[in-house]
Write a protein that binds this DNA or RNA. Structure first.
Lengths: 352, 352
DNA sequence: CCAAAAAATACAAACGTTTTCATTTCGGCG
DNA sequence: CGCCGAAATGAAAACGTTTGTATTTTTTGG
């Protein structure tokens, strides 16, 4: 009772170098394609024996489900769009991508990164909305979006999730880091160490128009003022010589501060270098505190405010999946705490 | 001669909140769906007038092509898989992603990032090969893949492109940075400055098993030896206190070097901090050279070897697209040059 | 002005799944 | 042993495109 050779391929011996379809698997396993399909998507609906057989054949034929076909049939795209501005190789953006991708790919979704660099790209994106029908959700990360744009975007009928973005009414959910709290932690730390002459270094607002910049500085200054202290504020201009420029500004201050708070580690770390080169010892002459706890902060001994963008992104991803799969609507707005990490760049102010 | 209302939607007034299909556009524009399709994919095949009309209607109905359907029909997945190990938020990996994504998304492809962290994930990936039929190409970045795996992977019939990877026979193309040349540049720079007591700091080979590590150190040592110099080699163990540990090792050396070359900026930058704190001035007492020209190198004034991973990745992406779209098979193996960037962390050795 | 070629458009058949509905098989129990 | 409900499986339609072929329209040139 020889079993007849499979139907599609003429010769039994010929290995199907061309990839197998569900039909091939069905033929070989002597079941219908529905059974094959169910073996993958609804294992509970097929008997263990059949399923085992199907999986064995699938393995043998190197079969995997065509996501395109599945997507078409189910109406899901299995894709989640991430809208980001500027470059994504910086620490924060890359961390967000890492966190999102980890969760999404585990759940069977692809993360489709849409970088919007130029004005023109921006216009074109919102004009044509290529994500329409091609994404099951849109995540917006560190990207300030205006009224018009958000309105247009929400015309596509999928959840919109904000990460590190101001809460917009059309967002289905938002995850942020508590910049307000973080800045207060920084300010309090310095003040508790006895510092009264405090300098705050910010980036040029014209360059990074993201709201969190504003929130950091305002919260920092607000807390200090509440303590009767008025910090000086200095702006680091962008450009090749921004740190040289910055140190020049600082050195020409009428009075040197005893502590410097920086809006981000990227300012703090080079600043420490320059201070040391100019004869100021950190922290014995001047304390420096950063913000982010990014790559080099630990190894360099920088006291800073830690954010955990990967965790935040993972949480955002899970919220997104909840929204897509229509389980419990998640808490709409989540705020992640920031933490003070004390290392060796800050110390009690010296009595003078 | 009133035009009849469109056929699918009962009421003319009702805005199709549900997204439009190609059929809706065809109806409204009074053409066939083939014409609509061709208006998007083969503009040359439809008359300018018709095309304008179609695009107008498409815009009006907020239509965009369903990538899933198109993918199914054409047999392309419109997806390119990126295989990466470990975390992707580090500077190099993130830069590669940025470069790849820029090119791929411009060409209409999605970059699907597959992070392989654990042994188990690795096994599972190569066992089930979920990319089969679901990626038009596979890019492998900074990921050492063994014989067995590459063999299995190449069973899926798409181009495999290596980025920053050792050339495997099954790779369709490879793009690398010239670590050999870069290391020589670093060595020569130090030697030209008169340094003879040179220390090389490497990472723990057990941690980062990537080949380029090995190449960097060997080329560096090789060049030095050619010049009659035998550098000391110190290994920075991983861990929370790796820099403390490192500086301890260095300070207990029988003789302090006049120059230190680091395998990566991530070692060099914190090292400078620690040297300064231990009373050694950089560069007047000790010169330090890094490798990578990563984020902080410029602002910190680090002399280093510049790599341009974004450019490299863009080039890899274009090669990939060439391979997919079957134009000219690109040059199979491309090596990007590394450059010496002299800043203020190295100087001529002092006469003693 | 007409025929023939070229350009533009339409028709219809896939692509590989998922899923509804119908059918078969199985196990339990009277 | 036979019946019934449940479990397992199968048949077939549809998802929204692309594209080969057929048809219609336009252009061209004698």
């Amino acid at each position: 009772m020889a079993t007849p050779p499979q139907r599609r391929h003429p010769a039994t011996t010929k290995e199907p170098t061309t990839t197998a379809t569900i039909q091939d698997v069905a033929n070989r396993a002597k079941v219908s394609i529905s059974t094959v399909s169910r073996s993958f998507t609804r294992p509970d609906l097929v008997s263990p024996k059949t399923r085992a057989k199907v999986l064995a054949v699938a393995d043998e034929l190197n079969f995997s489900i065509s996501r395109s076909a599945a997507a078409l049939k189910t109406g899901q795209s299995l894709r989640i769009a991430l809208l980001v501005s500027n470059h994504i190789s910086n620490w924060f953006a890359a961390s967000v991508i890492e966190g999102l991708n980890a969760e999404f790919s585990a759940a069977g979704y692809d993360l489709s990164i849409i970088q919007i660099d130029s004005r023109q790209q921006r216009r074109e994106f919102f004009d044509t909305l290529p994500v329409r029908r091609n994404a099951d959700a849109v995540v917006i990360a560190s990207f300030d979006i205006d009224e018009e744009e958000i309105k247009r975007l929400s015309s596509i009928d999928v959840p919109i999730i904000g990460v590190n973005s101001v809460l917009q009414s059309s967002f289905s959910a938002t995850v942020n880091i508590d910049d307000h709290q973080g800045s207060i932690l920084a300010a309090r730390h310095l003040i508790q160490l006895g510092h009264r002459h405090i300098l705050y270094v910010r980036t040029n607002p014209a360059q990074s128009l993201h709201f969190s910049v504003q929130e950091r500085i305002e919260s920092f200054l607000g807390y200090c003022r509440g303590q009767g202290i008025e910090p000086t504020v200095v702006t680091a201009e962008e450009g090749t010589y921004r740190i040289d420029n910055l140190i020049t500004q600082i050195l020409s201050l009428p009075e040197m501060p005893t502590a410097i708070a920086c809006q981000e580690d990227g300012l703090a770390i080079p600043l420490i270098f320059q201070l040391e080169r100019n004869g100021f010892s950190v922290p014995s002459d001047i304390s420096v505190i950063g913000y982010d706890d990014s790559t080099y902060a630990h190894d360099v001994g920088l006291t800073t405010i830690r954010q955990l963008p990967i965790d935040m992104a993972r949480s955002a991803a899970r919220k997104t999946l909840d929204l897509i799969e229509g389980h419990t609507p998640p808490k709409r707005n989540e705020v992640f705490p920031a933490h003070l990490v004390v290392r060796s760049s800050t110390s009690r102010v010296e009595d003078r």
